[in-house]
Amino acid sequence: MKQLNLILGHIGGTLLLLVRSLKHLPTLPRQWGRFIEQCYLIGYTSLPIVTILTFFIGSVLALQSGYSMENFGAKQFIGTLVGLSVVRELGPVMVAILIAGRVGSAIAAELASMKVYQEVDALVTMNIPPERILVLPRLAAILVMMPALTLIGIVCGWYGGAIVCQYTHIISLDSEAYFAALKAYMKTGDVIDGLLKAEVFGFVIVLVCCYIGLNTRGGPREIGASVTKAVVSSLILILVLDYFVTKALL
């Protein structure tokens, strides 16, 4: 019961943080510099590893499925399998996991250190709401950058699968046939569903990491504990939300 009350308390605190942040939404245009900075940190600096990760995810998926489908004479459908898997599931989930590990940990560490060294208390003393300058720009930036990163990751995954199919001698499926199968069964709704999942994952990751960072208590040792807690909580929430969001979209 104690653990349940603790979990419910964290959920309530996270929702209250969201409400307090949204109250300052009219001030966002005046924080254009902070917004652009967060877009750069979240999006641009994460782009290289997103492209590498998703490219090889598509490659491995095509390689594994290609050997199996070759035995059943169905290798012409590899493009369909890779395309739908990457766009509906692997693309959004893997980008979200990457963002949780790279961006979420950085957010939690920065805000936790500010809390431990009383910089957040100084903002409150100067009547500057921390939610306005520390949380709101990050939430806005993730809503803009998460679909862009996911879309780039999806395309890289598709091309990773195409290259493996064309240059693996056992599969030997040219890129034209690969993309023809992909286009035949791919719908615009599939892409939209994948981007919506990415939006939900990214928003929850940033919100949870901000909450944990701003509620750090104790000395410098607690900064590392908050980072660990933020990343683990984000990864669990990604997998839990993946089920419910997928069910809702279906």
Rank of each mutant, 00 (worst) to 15 (best):
I205N: 02
I154D: 04
V135A: 04
Y185N: 14
L143R: 00
T150I: 02
M114T: 04
G104F: 00
L151C: 04
T54C: 11
I142S: 00
R138D: 03
L195C: 02
L16Q: 15
L47V: 04
G218C: 04
M145K: 03
L250T: 14
E176H: 11
R34F: 13
R221I: 13
L28T: 07
C156R: 11
V120K: 03
V135W: 05
G202E: 03
K247D: 14
R132M: 11
P26D: 07
P130T: 00
V227H: 01
A109C: 13
I7W: 00
I236P: 11
V240R: 10
L4F: 07
L17N: 01
G194V: 07
T80V: 09
A230R: 06
V227L: 02
G224Q: 14
H24I: 01
M146P: 02
R34K: 12
I154M: 14
Y44D: 06
D174T: 12
P26L: 03
Y185S: 12
K115S: 10
T228P: 03
S226E: 06
S113H: 10
A74N: 11
I128V: 07
L84Y: 02
I152C: 02
K75F: 11
S113F: 11
L134P: 00
T80P: 03
I97N: 06
I154T: 10
E131P: 06
L250A: 13
K229Y: 01
Q64H: 06
A106S: 15
E199Q: 14
D121I: 08
I42T: 08
L90F: 11
A96P: 00
A184K: 13
K247T: 15
P129D: 15
L207Q: 04
I192V: 12
I42G: 05
Y243E: 07
L143I: 05
V240Y: 11
Y178G: 01
A96G: 08
L237H: 12
I212D: 09
T51P: 05
D242E: 10
I97L: 13
L18Q: 03
S175C: 03
V93E: 01
I142C: 09
L90N: 00
F56D: 13
I171N: 13
Q38L: 07
S85A: 15
M114A: 05
S234H: 12
M186F: 15
L235A: 10
Y159P: 06
L143W: 01
I107C: 07
F179E: 08
I99R: 01
S234Q: 00
T125K: 15
L18H: 06
D190G: 08
F55I: 08
I236H: 09
S21K: 00
E110I: 09
I57Q: 03
S46M: 00
V82G: 01
Y67R: 15
E119Y: 04
Y44I: 15
I97Y: 09
L63A: 13
F201T: 03
F55S: 08
I49Y: 12
G194F: 10
Q118E: 15
P92T: 04
A225V: 12
D174C: 09
R102L: 09
G153F: 08
G160M: 05
